[in-house]
Every structure is written in structure tokens, then in C-alpha cells.
Design a binder for these strands. Structure first.
Lengths: 202, 202, 202, 202
DNA sequence: CATGAATGAGCTTTCATTCAT
DNA sequence: TATGAATGAAAGCTCATTCAT
């Protein structure tokens, strides 16, 4: 999470300030997740990141900007994870199975990040246009689905429906895991995948 | 929404105060939906409900209590809608189809309420125990699923998974409707139902 | 200063709140005069007026509004003092002598108010349009000067010049009094009046 | 404005640093004039002067010192302009006419500087003792007036009164020029001079 | 039951100033 | 000499809640 670009390693200075920005993003994530946006004051965020409140404003314009940047950076991260190992040359079933499992891994392992993203997608704590901007990271999946519809491996229904029935349910599982403090066992995961595929396959 | 019990009609005074409480709940719903919990101050809620800020505290202990009560009253309402016309004597397919469509109608017609409930279920704005308490209104559905699993009409998977793949996707559709300001046409609804059933049927 | 309208005396409540507003204006005047606008924080103003900081915002929109209202109320007050006992039927010399002495009395007795007005007129601490609005209270003087120019008792020069040479010098005297903590004796006042008249008479 | 002493030309380095100090004074003047002292933060001043905030503290002790030095340097400048071409051997009328016109030129041409000085003289943004120190640059004028009082060309009134009625009115004209964005025409200037002299001549 | 006025605590943000380099 | 980064303290302002009526 919050990966630094390689060029930063050249200059020691740049590294330190980048680290500070990352610490701030992490602190924000943690506080908003635990207490909600309304109880994650800048002062607490600063303290958790071990900087002065004023320092936040060297890296972010204001609280909204901080939240937006956090959202976008997580979405990007999520996108990267989702398509790890994926290539457009894969078959529809094979490719989707890979992507689905990637996403499942992300949602079940990087719980904090996933919970935050879910929160953002159902509340007005990030600007609407920022939420829009976050969508581009899913493009390869939409392309794959189009292929699937064309070769009749996937139902001829809209992307929204496909997403709602094959990916979105994972968010519910993640919520349950979080809420009940239970683990999602391998069997459950297998059943979930089976159900996802049953739902959207032709 | 926010139905008053019939007994209230006996006393004129009680009616008026009940109306005030309802106005407050409605105002809260609207403000939290539009601005988020963090920008729905008691003052604005009071103004929107045409009462004084102090009056809120005659009906609710504090802001948390107000939010909790709103959540619970909506959950109850949602439960009632979900099982309208349903009887335990129905067959599994027939019964579930009825319940599913009831829920779909609720989510697509009472958007404000649904959006609020979704927001509550993915943020810490209602107390955890209150969220738990809201679950009881779904009991009949769980009973029906148990029957379905026993007579092999429904997959032998946990309630969580069944919910995640047959009901939860409706939330995604509702979000899309809300976000894109589009209507969900009948064809989409039919496809959604078909997909739900494909996902969980044995 | 800060006179309350008579109607307020009827309702005890209204009286108290009006008193609070006046206390705030007085506190603001005193702090800005002593420390300058930049060192007259809302917290200090509140404390001096014996109210909570939040209370200020019941009476004024923000700090700028507070300052503007103070300016306007003082300007109005100043105008009233300037024309006390004056009637349009008076001759030019007689009338102007009265007004001049009224203004002199105001500037030399109500020093705090005068100092504040002078400060406002030479800094951007009140909005430009508010400064404009404050001008109307001098209208009768301009009318009198017009009469004087017509009947050749006063030089045919612009209102600006007349003001600059007959009224504005009083501000300098007031500043000197303030700065040196000295009194302006009667003899000085007589000489000042004589000089004013010499400057503008035809 | 802000003239550098000739000795600085010997060392190239000294020149550059002197330039930086001047740039800072200019930036301060401009910001305080436009926004008022309360909205002229060190950060903005630094940016406008193209230096780092920290650099300011190499040249000035703190913000108060910066303001004070600006005031004094302008006062000195003003004094120099006022007595350009003047010699103690001149007659009272002739000498005063020269000085008056010098001052008028300064106030009407170097508006920014004059506005700043006026602002300082009616607010506590420069220390009181600094304001006192600024007075010495007017000494020759006071000597001239003393001569005038002795040979009966000028009224036997205090320096304060003489200043109030012959020099101070120019400040008002300058304010008007600034406020109304109008020019002061030659005719107005002639009339102003005539009025000044009428006011104080014996 | 209902309220407008009041508030202390706390919020986001800014600022004059310092420090490490 | 010069700086960009950093900050503690404080600014203006808001909010959930209470109180006198």
C-alpha cells in the first residue's frame, strides 16, 4: 500500500517527506475506519502520524483533499492487485477466475483498505467526481466481460448487473468477516466463487 | 414510512407530538443522506423539522440516539415491506420470489431510506449493537432458506452467502440508480431476479 | 453611543439581548483601538463583553460583519451629534459654526469613537462599500456648503477641499491630543475655528 | 524609494543582499496597503519578494521590526523629498510654498508610500516610539514656521495647528484620489495651495 | 411540552517563527 | 547567506447540548 516511486530512492530528502505523506494517509485511513469521518479530527490524524497539525497542510490542501487523495490512492492500489498476473490473452473463464480471486484476496486480506473504500462508496465523504475518477482502474475487467458476452460464455446483461452479482457480494463477505471477527475459510471462498460463476455464466 | 400506531388517534395531543418526532426523523434522514453524518448538525435538523434545537432533546437522548432510532425504525419498516403478502405456507421458490420482489420494490422506490440504511451498514454512525438488533426483521427469510436447503431447492451454503448473492446485489443496483440518476427498467429487474435465482438455486 | 430604540423597553427580554450586542460593540471598539484590528481576536472581545465566543455569532455573521456594524453605528452616531441643534433655516456662517463646534466636541470628547473611525477611514478593516454607506450622514453639511458657494460666503471649491480644510484638521488635533495625552484648551479651539473659517470663507 | 547608499557598490555581494532587503520592504508595503496589516502574513511577503520566509529573519528581527523599518525608511524618504531645493535662506512665503508643493507632489505621486504612512499614523501597527522618531525629518519646516510667526507672516498658533491646516489636508486629498481612482488636476492643486496659505497666513 | 438564547469544548486552518541543511 | 520543511500556538468559527422561561 502507498507505494513510493523508485526515483525517490535517489534523494534521501524526498524519501523522508514522502514517508510523512504516507504516514498521514495511513493515519487517516485508520481513524476514519475506526471512528467514522465525523470523528477523525485533523489533530488526531496528525498525532497518529507523529507530526504537527500544521504539517498536514504542507501535503494536503484541506481535509477533503486528504480524504480524496486517500481514496484515489487506494483505488489505484486495488486496481493493481485485481489484475496481477492477468493478461488479455487469457480465456474468459480462466481470466475472470484469476481476477475474482485477486479481488477476493485483496478484500479479505487488506480489510482496512477495503472497508474504507466501501465506506466511501456509500457516503458523501469523497467528492462525487473523485469517485468517478476511481472507476478507470477496472477497465480491463469490463473488456473481458464484453468478450465473454460476445462468445456466449457470460450472460448478455449489463456490466452493472455482472458486477453486482459477481464482485459486489465479496464486499458483503468482507463486512461479515469484519463485523463478526471471523475468518473466511477456504471452503466458503470456493463456494463463493462457484456461486459467482453460476450467477453470471451463460 | 414512519407509520404512527392507530392508538395515537385517541389523544389529539399525542398525535401532534408524534408528528414532531416523525418530522425530526425525516429531517435527519434527508440531511445525513445529502451531506453525510459529519455535515448534518442538530441545528439544521431542527430547522428542517420546524422545531427548536432544544425540542429534539425531548424526543431523543442525543444525536446518537436519534440516529439509532432512525435506523431501527427504517429497518422495521423495511422488514414489514419485505414480507408483505408472504406466508410461511408458500413454497420456497414462490415465497422467495415474492420476498425478493418486495425488497426490490422497497430499494428502488424508497431510495432515500435504502441509501441511508446502506450508509449505516458500512460506517460507524450507528452503534454496533443497534445494527445487530436490526437484523431480527429478516428472520422469516432465514427460515425460508433453511427450508430450501433441506428440500434441496437451494444451495447448501450459509445465510451470509445466500444474502450476499441474492439480496445484497440489489443495493448495488440502487446505488447505480442513485448515482447515475437513471431508472431501473422492468427488463433489468427481470434479469436481476433471474440472476439471483441462478446464483442460489440448487 | 449605541443607543437602544425606545420600543425595546417594553419587552424585558429584548432589552437584555440588545445590551449584549452593545457590550460586544463596545468591547470591539476598545480592543481594536488599543491593539489594532490584527490583535483583537474574537476570544478577547468575547471575554471583555462577558460572553462566550460562540455568542458573538448570534449577533454578528463574522468578524468582518462585527467591524462593519460597529463602523456604521458610530458613523450614524457621529452624524446625529454633528447636526444637533442645526436647522436648515440658519445662515451659512451661523449654521457652519454650529456644526463645526458639534463635530469638534464629538472628536474631542468621544475620543475612542473618533479614533476608531479615523482608523477605519485609512485602512481596509471595513469593507469599501460600508465606508461609502457611512457618508450619507453628512448630507446636510454638503447642502449648507452649496448654499454658501451660491451666496458667495464660501469659496467656490469642491466639497472635498472644503472638508479637507475645515473638518479634517480636527482629526489631526484629536490624534495629537490622544498621542500626547494633553487636553485641547479653549484658546486652541477658538484659534482652530478661526483658522477653519479663514480657510474656506470667500 | 528605498535608495541604496553608494558605498554598497563596492562589494557585489552586499549589493545583492541590499536588493533583497529592498524587495522585502516593497513587498510589505504593497501587501499591507492592499490587505491591511492583519492580512499580510510573512509567507505572502516572502513569496512576493521571491525569497524564503526564513530569509526575512536574516534582515529583520521579526514582523514588528520589519514594519517599523519600513515606516522609518519611508519617513526619511518623505523628509528628503519635502525639502528638495529648499534652503534656510529663503523667505517664509517662498520657502513654505516650495515645501508645500514638494509634499503635495510626494503625496500625489507616491501614493502607495503615502497611504502606508497615513495608515501607520492612525493605527498601532508601528510602535509608538518609532512614530515619534519619524518626526525629526520635518524639523526644517518647524524652524521656518517659527521664523514666520516672528516676522508676522504666519499666524501665532502652534505647530500642530499650522500642520493641521496646511499640510494635513493633503492627506485627505490623497485619500480621495485613491478611493475614487480620480486624478487631482492642476486647478485643484492651485486652489488647495491658496486655501492652505489663507488658513495660516497672518 | 416547547423554545430561543447561550455556551464550553473542540473543530479546521493559519501564522510567525525556527531548524537542519 | 539562504532555504524549504516543520511546528506550537492561536485564530475564527461551529456544534451538541443545556437552561431559563
Amino acid at each position: 500500500m502507498f507505494s513510493q516511486s523508485k526515483t525517490d530512492f535517489t534523494k534521501q530528502m524526498r524519501l523522508k517527506t514522502e514517508e510523512k505523506k504516507i504516514a498521514l494517509l495511513k493515519a487517516t485511513l485508520s481513524l476514519i475506519n475506526d471512528n467514522g469521518f465525523h470523528d477523525a479530527p485533523m489533530g488526531k490524524i496528525a498525532k497518529l502520524a507523529n507530526v504537527s497539525p500544521a504539517t498536514i497542510y504542507l501535503y494536503f490542501e484541506n481535509k477533503q483533499d486528504l480524504t480524496n487523495q486517500l481514496y484515489l490512492s487506494l483505488k489505484e492500489d486495488f486496481g493493481k492487485s485485481a489484475f496481477e498476473g492477468y493478461s488479455e490473452s487469457m480465456g474468459v473463464y480462466e481470466g475472470f477466475k484469476l481476477i475474482w480471486h485477486n479481488i477476493a484476496q485483496y478484500k479479505l486480506n487488506q480489510v482496512a483498505e477495503s472497508v474504507f473504500l466501501a465506506q466511501c462508496d456509500s457516503t458523501p465523504i469523497v467528492t462525487k467526481c473523485v469517485r468517478m475518477a476511481g472507476l478507470i482502474h477496472l477497465q480491463p475487467l469490463l473488456t473481458l466481460w464484453e468478450k465473454g458476452r460476445k462468445n456466449n460464455t457470460i450472460k448478455p446483461i449489463s456490466d452493472y448487473l455482472l458486477y453486482a452479482y459477481s464482485i459486489y457480494p465479496l464486499s458483503f463477505l468482507m463486512n461479515m468477516k469484519q463485523e463478526n471477527q471471523t475468518e473466511i475459510c477456504n471452503e466458503t471462498l470456493t463456494k463463493a466463487w462457484q456461486t459467482s460463476w453460476d450467477a453470471i455464466k451463460q
